[in-house]
Design a protein around this nucleic acid. Sequence first.
DNA 1: TAACTGTATTACTTTGTTTAGTACAGTTAT
DNA 2: ATAACTGTACTAAACAAAGTAATACAGTTA
Lengths: 120, 120
Amino acid sequence: MIQLNQRDPRPIYEQVKENFKNLIFQGVIRPDEKMPSVRELAQKLSINPNTIQRAYRELEQEEMIYSIPGKGSFAASVNMIRDNEIRDLMQTFTQTADRLLDIGVSKEDLIRKIEGRSRV
Amino acid sequence: MIQLNQRDPRPIYEQVKENFKNLIFQGVIRPDEKMPSVRELAQKLSINPNTIQRAYRELEQEEMIYSIPGKGSFAASVNMIRDNEIRDLMQTFTQTADRLLDIGVSKEDLIRKIEGRSRV
DNA sequence: TAACTGTATTACTTTGTTTAGTACAGTTAT
DNA sequence: ATAACTGTACTAAACAAAGTAATACAGTTA
């Protein structure tokens, strides 16, 4: 389910976080579905439970999952996740746009950039 | 000229970098003007010349300054700096836009965001 | 009660930052 | 030519920060 890359320079807990983010986004882990327990996953990956715990703690802070002591950790609802990501991306979007406008790029240039994108 | 903040958790070379970026952007250091030498500045700030050297090296990689062995380090031209910043911001802008489009936000929504900005 | 769950605390290890010392080559002014 | 600058490179060591490991505690479930 989760796969660690030895050559990846990032810390393990970051790789674990990204792995789960992808799994949740792709729907492999459904909303409210139970995640592997910290000990179970740690054993499978041959790493320390604390490392998993850190990944889970940060995923919870980012509202990707929620944890209940004694019960387990569970994937948040996709709507929640989607809304959170849109909120964060929108903030980056407007901040970047403001900086570009400040520096002298015109609104028209930015709009043309958007219109030129080949997305739906 | 440069001021270090003891409570700032960032490494010293990062603080030095930011200080100079601001000075150059604000025009306090003019294009092609000589920057303090690594040894001189290190002595003034009571830190190691190597730390300044690292700041200068990275500023040069970011094309904020240019260095000539034997002569000194000099601020890059504002046009160069401006172009570089626009290039970087544009990349962030389109990447963020693409991600938002992927996730289901419409082009119209993004364009409206731009138009709603209170910049010139 | 036993086996599971997340969490907190403390220590150890690894990595990154900073300092220090030394050296080399180009520039400038004496 | 020489002395005093300049940037750059390299190695080693001291120190700080980040990451990981070990252990213990409390809640949940069967």
